[in-house]
Design a binder for these strands. Structure first.
Lengths: 210, 210
DNA sequence: AAATGTGAAGTTGTTCACAGCT
DNA sequence: AGCTGTGAACAACTTCACATTT
């Protein structure tokens, strides 16, 4: 159980919720109104029972003998994930990768907007124009506070990652998507999701040889 | 147990191996020759017992009362992961994200080299020059075969992801790092690691609100 | 008849406790 | 004495089996 009384949801369940949401979006595009756990599970690459267990953490949404209402289920999941309203996100570290992430269109339609980028050298000439402003690190605390930003994408060099993280946490950021190659130390009320591209490749490397 | 007689290694263990390897690299840079499971585990953000269990899958490497030899352990892990020799990788889909990934320096020093990029429109003008050649999709099968490439990074639009995947698998690719937003269907001897940036953000979004 | 919701069983992964080396 | 290696306990997650509802 968690603080708020609801049973605590497995991390993996939350992750799969995002997958279900994408599958449901495709169903909606195709004007499909109702879906069975079997069909949706297949699209998501999981077992039907797992899908039902996952949903059961949040309540009961299906109709026996019929299945799930695609729209209702989408709303429920988006609501649980907190993506039903647009979330502001900042990006810190506008190097190669940061630049690509800032101009990545994939975030927008999923309910996130990168509203500003920060860099130690904001005025440096870059390969590409961003639609977002690039601000200096000195403006960070003020900006995060004023815009009530809670989430940040971190794409700074390893050497400064911890230091920048400390500044972000101090400014009020509570969720970090970390592309740097170091394991960040943060207070326990701050969540870090690591995306380490080299590790993902290494992981593949292991599984293809064995 | 797996086909080859060795006990099958948990995915998470393999993932952590990569983390240990990075921590060990830093120790080596600092001329530290020996490390205890407690110290290494702390650096990697795990419990000492977990580190020892993880290593135990591969044999016994420590010396009781002393700890682990940093260099030996590094070699052992690199060897297990298959990164002790340089692995050729291709990248497919040279859009925004693909371009950034192709020029990302992080891969090289971890034992991977992106030796070529492929795109449906190889000659389109891009924001940036790549050091790798950008080839048309028609050259893919031949190239993969000749260069004995086993791993590919997929950064194509969702609409063509499955089709391109089929071509890659047919050409002999057995490991895929998938940045597209669809769940790929592949034969079971092909490994897919998904990196879905929107899902990672959604995941954060859930945990910061709860 | 069709498909959900769920307690119970099974599986996998983590942590403990301590025996066993050096 | 210090620290690893590991069986056993524990916890988390998945799957099964089936009662239940429409």
């Amino acid at each position: 159980m968690k603080k708020n009384g609801r049973p605590s949801i497995p991390r993996k369940t939350v992750y799969r919720l995002s997958i279900y949401l994408r599958c449901l979006a495709r169903l909606r595009e195709n004007r499909i109104n109702t879906v069975s756990s079997e069909a949706l599970a297949k699209a998501a690459g999981v077992k039907p029972t797992q899908l039902r267990k996952d949903l059961a953490y949040f309540g009961t949404f299906g109709r026996r003998g019929l299945g799930y209402d695609v729209t209702d289920l989408s709303h429920m999941i988006a609501n649980e994930l907190g993506t039903s309203s647009l979330q502001p996100v900042i990006l810190v570290g506008v190097g190669n990768l940061g630049l690509a992430l800032a101009s990545y269109r994939g975030f927008e339609k999923e309910g996130f907007e990168i509203i500003a980028a920060f860099d130690a050298a904001p005025d440096r000439k870059r390969d590409k124009e961003l639609k977002q402003p690039i601000l200096g690190m000195d403006r960070l605390a003020e900006f995060v506070h004023e815009q009530q930003v809670k989430m940040a994408i971190l794409s700074v060099p390893a050497a400064v990652a911890q230091e920048v993280t400390n500044a972000l946490v101090a400014a009020g950021i509570t969720g970090l998507l970390n592309f740097s190659t170091v394991m960040l130390a943060v207070p326990e009320d701050v969540i870090v999701n690591n995306v380490n591209l080299a590790i993902e490749l290494e992981n593949l490397s292991y599984f293809i040889q064995n």
